[in-house]
Write a protein that binds this DNA or RNA. Sequence first.
DNA 1: CTGAAAGCGCTTACAG
DNA 2: CTGAAAGCGCTTACAG
Lengths: 335, 335
Amino acid sequence: MNDRPTTTLDQVARAAGVSPSTVSRILNGTARVSEAKRRSVEEAIAALDYRPNVLAQGLARGRSLTIGVLTQDIASPFYSESLKGIEEALAGTGYAPLFVSGHWDAEEEARKVALLVDRRVDGVIVLTGMIPDDALIATAERVPVAVTGRTLNAPRLIAIDLDHEAGAYAATRYLIDLGHTRIVHLAGVQGHADARARLAGYRRALAEAGIAEDPALIVDGQFNENGGLDAVNALLDHRVSFTAIFAANDQSAVGARLALYRRGLRVPDDVSLVGFDDLPGSLYTTPPLTTVRQPAYELGRLTARVLLHLIDNRPLPALDLPMSLIVRDSAGEPA
Amino acid sequence: MNDRPTTTLDQVARAAGVSPSTVSRILNGTARVSEAKRRSVEEAIAALDYRPNVLAQGLARGRSLTIGVLTQDIASPFYSESLKGIEEALAGTGYAPLFVSGHWDAEEEARKVALLVDRRVDGVIVLTGMIPDDALIATAERVPVAVTGRTLNAPRLIAIDLDHEAGAYAATRYLIDLGHTRIVHLAGVQGHADARARLAGYRRALAEAGIAEDPALIVDGQFNENGGLDAVNALLDHRVSFTAIFAANDQSAVGARLALYRRGLRVPDDVSLVGFDDLPGSLYTTPPLTTVRQPAYELGRLTARVLLHLIDNRPLPALDLPMSLIVRDSAGEPA
DNA sequence: CTGAAAGCGCTTACAG
DNA sequence: CTGAAAGCGCTTACAG
């Protein structure tokens, strides 16, 4: 039942009284064709409502016109912005993105990448993830790959990273300049390179300001709302004193904000809060969140562009994208 | 540069000393094969690291093993939950979802659907959208389609809708039972069927309670944060009196909440607020949002399942999914 | 400019 | 059980 007869190039050729080769040439603008034939082919195409079979084209040309994209969670508020950027960069190029999710599991990521390769994608984009470098290098032997969130050098592979350490430094430094010295860091998931880099930036800012690091102030926020909520609850339960929180991402900042709200602590009057990412929703938290903006959309767009260049063997564009502190209303001077 | 030589089925056949047909049969378990040949083929596959070309399989079998999914915005917090449900339902079936975005523009949606058809997807899922019914019915002549957010009857097409009117009724009724009579409705985008149904539910609840409808209380929230923010600001500027807000979706509720915050109005002490959708983030707003839960994830999963059944001509599962009021902390009795 | 032919990498009746 | 052959719907050297 699945098949309604689709019209094929051969039928068009017959209807127009020309050879299939000619139809193909007209379709692809791949050679000069007499006006008469062109016209009759175009008429036949219109009359039959012919649309080329992209799969068949792919098989014949040796390229699928699809770009595989490994994200971690299709519904992630952060990465979905990057997906949007990828969509945008691919629009009008003939390439379609094929999205798969790895869920931060190295094995699942590897399986999903294999699935992309099985479908003969013309290039692969990997949005961070836990998949080991070697696996990436190995797949780059079959197909060009562009990966974000790590530094890596290999043939047919290009890695784009942002300076998370610098972003975290700027955020922490901002709080210090405001007068805070008891600054909590809601750390990200252990093992994530981003989480490590952000912690390092926090530490560097403290050290530079001559503020001794207090291990009690570095807690696990798990990169999500619930992690932030639990961590701040625990801090409050243990009567740890602090005047500011630097969260490793906006989601954990939002969780922290709710914990404070529940205890009757005001932001920023009682506690200052700074996040990381600048999710679309962070503009509308109460109060709007001061945060480090990661250009997720632009990152997606750039990564896709770079991959296209890599596929066509063209010289690559510049790869630098800035992190920037966005000052809104959630941080102020200590009470 | 794009092509590292990939090993083909023919090479496997040669290496194993059998015909290509046999290799294919073993790959697909489509016929009995002698143990000896099976073994040598399996060895050859392992030795050559052979992976079938899914595109070529698709061409030969007349099915692409991909399901086209038209969403409106890949980064929408609501629809991305449905995408996740679709992913989940398709996992392990051999089908891969191909996501495209229509951006609430009927023409773009039609173009994107055409793109899916060009790629010979085996089925199409349309997550609401503005594309007209006829267009959907026409594409159903080429490929099975499952569409959400509307009611429609046609061959090879199945429509799944939720009862938005009932959900809105429940929300409004809840506020009325709490004692509110001056209830603002932050309406959704004009022309969206969902928006109309939710407005209707609001009206029915008022009418049933004998509360006269005040046109000044029905304002445009545009289904997004900024719309909710602007609308509530305008209400406050014009000194319209109200004690509660029923927003047509959570995003506009969040914007409304920020407007109230900025004016120093407390939620729920001064103004009660109820949303619609139950986005993942609504659990973490301050205060956590009372809202009507739309089972977005389950909807995506069900839609994908139904489509698979349609493709295989199997009897369809039940299509009902409930809306439910989730009571959290943003609504209370009027001051 | 244009057609016949071979080929892309598979599958699947058709014979044995 | 298994192979040779034809076919899926295109593209692209190769000749004219």
